[in-house]
Amino acid sequence: MGRKTKVALTVGVAGVAAWATSKFVAKPMPRESKKALDFNKPIILAHRGGLAEAPENTKAAFSKSAELGVHGFAIDIRLTQDEEIIVFHDEYVDRTTDFSGRIADYSLIELKKADAGYAFKNEQGEHPYRGKGEQILTLRELLENFPHLLIAINLKDSPDTYEGSLMPSKLWRLLEELGAEDRVVVTSQYDEQTDRFNLYAQNRIATGAGSDEVKKAYAAFTSKLGHLYSPRADLFRITKKLGVFPLGTKSFIHFLTQLNIPTYFENVNDKESFIKLLNLGAAGFITDCPTPAMEVVQESIDE
């Protein structure tokens, strides 16, 4: 046996020994339970109120989904020119209303004049909500109108923007004022945003994993170093795939469940996908189509 071979074997044995030692010493630390996420069955969150069935982010959509029995809503929030928090997805108002321009360039009073049901079409290509008085809602209005439902709040603005820099503190003050700490979960694709929000919340509110945290968890899971992974979020709000990497697998869902982290899958809108992910252990779904989602969940409960 040559010297190089001996060195390689020595390094390999040392690596295995280090891994075994870390496996013995390091104990995964599950996340502390949050009341907002304390469900004993899979849940349905209507995405923007259920945007496939009524105008997104309107009272009509939220009310319709609530009547179906959904467990809550998944929404996005943005700041108006006068720094009011509204329930809105896009940076611009053009796609869903009869207005045009940036949200941040309008005051709340001005935005309330927009027809929030303007762009919605039903399956027949009709505009049943156009001119029916649907308005853009504030987050305050949504929380006050549906106090019994879970609201997954997504901070859309980048922390590098003016609106993004203000949002964490403004959101915390509103949630604290309304006593809504135990019925919301705050998420953002930017981990920095949820970290900044948590500087105010101090772990009193459930938070979701951003893009970097999801990648970090998946890397730990696939590298067999999952026992070294220390989660920084209470919820994983994920799609079935991260690029080419499958997140919707029984083993990855189980990995997170062992850490007391539920997985809510986004962009799930057909019954086949609902059923498949339910069988794999999904804790919830964020869907544009709450009607078939509720049917699947109810069928699974009845079985």
Rank of each mutant, 00 (worst) to 15 (best):
Q124S: 11
K4L: 13
A152E: 13
E295Q: 11
V184I: 15
A54G: 00
P128C: 08
T207Q: 12
I301T: 07
E303F: 02
S300P: 01
D38S: 14
G243S: 07
N154Q: 12
P246T: 04
F265G: 08
R95G: 00
Q258V: 07
L199R: 15
N203L: 07
V184Y: 11
I103E: 03
D38Y: 12
K4Q: 15
P290R: 12
P159S: 01
K4Y: 06
K34A: 11
K271S: 13
R204T: 10
S251W: 03
T239H: 07
L277M: 02
N145K: 09
Q81K: 15
K132N: 04
N203E: 15
V296K: 09
K35H: 12
F197I: 00
I136G: 09
L137K: 03
A52E: 09
N198L: 05
E134H: 12
M1W: 09
L142W: 10
S188V: 00
A119D: 11
Y218E: 07
K240N: 06
Q124C: 11
E91A: 12
E144H: 03
V16L: 15
R95W: 01
F73E: 02
R78N: 04
E266W: 15
G210R: 00
I253N: 10
S63R: 10
P290T: 04
G50C: 02
P42D: 03
F274S: 14
V87G: 00
R130T: 05
F197G: 09
V186M: 01
E32T: 14
S223L: 03
W172H: 13
I136W: 09
A66E: 08
A233N: 03
A66P: 02
A52F: 09
Y200E: 12
N267R: 10
V184P: 09
